[in-house]
Write a protein that binds this DNA or RNA. Structure first.
Length: 520
RNA sequence: GGGCCGGUAGCUCAACGGUAGAGCAUCUGACUCUUAAUCAGCUGGUUGUGGGUUCGAAUCCCACCCGGCUCACCA
């Protein structure tokens, strides 16, 4: 038994509702709400009756609860309502499941029954108490003895049938309706949460320390990207939203923390497509006394751990293709990968002129770029990347593309770096971190020349970071993982928007202003 | 930024130059074992916005807004 306090509440009128225009359907529900208030019932009560079970627990424990005649109290949203005169069946839904409730006039009394029929609507959130039984059609059901409105829904749900809310713009702008109407969307974010939890657990178990570094930075760095700019009023100072956590995490390595990681948002002021959202979740990991081969092993083991933890298998279905995560994953140098795909040997064609001549001779259709390194990158993107569906490490990148990575001892034009590719997309990026402050200074200067030449993504000189390196950073392996992209693989989604709860969308303009702009 | 496709009732969609419709939801009525309940009846629209062409525009044209795919940019 539960009794909810009833309060006589203020009127909603008096100009307070001026901003919330109600359409016909909403007005109908608002009228019902007012009728309830007039009868002394609170449509948005402060107190909730004690919930004895979730709807899934009701299903799991049904036999015992029914046999014992236990009175249960459950709550949920009304998803379906079938009224047949003096009785009604109602389908309730909560976070993880659904259950049927049976209202009969004889059981709950004339007045509460009439109140339910008159005042409740699809989408309302209610609590019901009663015992359990099985209907003639075999459906486990609560025989309601009492019911209480917990929250009146003014806006009707899209459609009582699942999956009928499919307009992708509406789904992302009104994610709350999407989550309510499309249970598989909830599943996507459950899997995403379990994935992130597994990554964290793996790193914690390996002795890494989770840390937090600044999002607001006076100097951005750690990646090739354009930043978002913001401003601190009191300090009269422009600040950047971070594009990477790298340079701060390596300062911690200098500080002898040895094994650290951070999971957080990075922000890049760039185009938006199915693999890029302006803000995205990045995992970065740094380990002292290690190099990029250590990070390759770690990446492989961590993703394998996550797949086992989330799915219990290493074979993931992605858009009809089985992605096999069974280690070891192939490790191919960028030189070999390009040679295999185009028969051009970038080690032999080691100047821009000879490389472009080779491209011309091979009749390859790629854009021409101003530097050798960018031309190599272009070749790779155009002829190799899309084909990397199964997990593959591509190793050893041109130096100029990687100003924070250590040179390969045998060939100073290449650095000790790898990227992990799956489903045709970059998933992770790692290198043997450059800890030589003098070489790092040279690389920053090199970037500065690129910036002056018009490369807006070139890195800025970071003198404070150089100061840190002068204190001495141990040999270190560093790794960055695109968590959203990994989530795309784990949830079998083709766009990053589907694995981000509130992906970036343009602001909806007022009709009047858009008309004014249109006419201007 | 370019190309292509789209925006019509609360939701999902028709109508493609001649009165803007259906299913579900809503509303009214019937119904005490339904489960996409059923039956009967009634509602519901500035067709994204603003112009233009036309006797007549959701439909054709132009501009703009929002979205999707794609290319480019970009890791």
């Amino acid at each position: 038994m539960f009794v909810l306090p009833v309060c006589r509440r203020h009127s909603y009128d008096g100009g307070l509702r001026i901003l919330m225009e109600l359409n016909d359907l909403q007005q109908t529900r608002y009228t019902k709400l007012q009728a309830l208030q007039e009868q002394g019932f609170e449509p948005y009560p402060a107190r909730v009756p004690a919930r004895t079970h979730t709807l899934n627990e009701l299903r799991e424990q049904f036999v015992a609860l029914e046999a014992a005649g236990t009175v249960v109290t459950v709550m949920g949203r009304i998803r379906q309502r079938r009224v047949m005169g003096k009785s009604a069946f109602v389908q309730l839904a909560d976070a993880n499941g659904g259950f049927q409730a049976f209202f009969s006039k004889r059981d709950i009394g004339d007045e509460p029954y009439k109140r339910f029929i008159d005042a409740s609507d699809l989408g309302d959130i209610i609590a019901v108490s009663g015992t359990l039984f099985v209907t003639k059609m075999g459906e486990p059901t609560v025989a309601v003895q009492e019911w209480t409105l917990l929250s009146k829904a003014i806006t009707p749900p899209p459609d009582k049938r699942e999956g009928q809310f499919s307009d992708s713009e509406a789904r992302h702008r009104q994610r709350y309706i999407d989550l309510m109407a499309n249970p598989e969307v909830r599943d996507i974010f459950r899997i995403r949460a379990r994935l992130i939890s597994a990554l964290r657990r793996y790193l914690d178990d390996q002795g890494f320390l989770e840390v937090e570094t600044p999002v607001l930075q006076s100097l951005y760095g750690g990646a090739a990207a354009r930043p978002f700019v913001t401003h601190h009023n009191q300090l009269h100072q422009d600040l950047y939203l971070r594009i990477a956590t790298e340079l701060y995490l390596k300062r911690l390595i200098v500080g002898d923390m040895e094994k650290v990681y951070e999971i957080g948002k990075d922000f890049r002021n760039e185009g938006v497509d199915r693999f890029h959202n302006p803000e995205f979740t990045m995992l970065e990991v740094y380990q002292a006394y290690a190099d990029y081969t250590t990070m390759m092993d770690l990446t492989e083991a961590m993703v394998v751990f996550a797949a086992q933890a989330v799915f219990g298998t290493l074979q993931l279905d992605y858009q009809g293709t089985t992605i096999d995560l069974t280690p070891p994953w192939p490790r191919i140098s960028m030189r070999a990968a390009i040679q295999q795909a185009t028969s051009i040997d970038i080690a032999a064609e080691d100047t821009l002129e000879t490389l472009q001549a080779a491209i011309k001779a091979a009749n390859l259709r790629v854009d021409l770029h101003p530097t050798w390194a960018k031309q190599v990158d272009e070749l790779f993107s155009e002829y190799v990347e899309d084909g990397l569906v199964q997990p593959t490490f591509i190793t050893d990148y041109p130096r100029a593309l990687s100003p924070l990575a250590k040179r390969k001892p045998a060939d100073p034009n290449f650095v000790e770096r790898f990227e992990l590719f799956m489903i045709g997309s970059e998933m992770a990026n790692a290198f043997t971190e450059l800890n030589d402050p003098f070489d790092q200074e040279q690389r920053f200067l090199e970037q500065g020349r690129d910036y002056a030449a018009g490369d807006e993504e070139a890195m800025q000189m970071d003198l404070d970071y150089l100061e840190a390196l002068k204190v001495g950073m141990p040999p270190t392996g560093g790794l960055g993982v695109g968590v959203d992209r990994l989530a795309m693989l784990f949830t079998n989604q083709t766009t990053i928007r589907e694995v981000i709860l509130f992906p970036h969308l343009r602001k909806v303009k007022e009709a009047a202003s858009s008309a004014a702009e249109g006419g201007a």
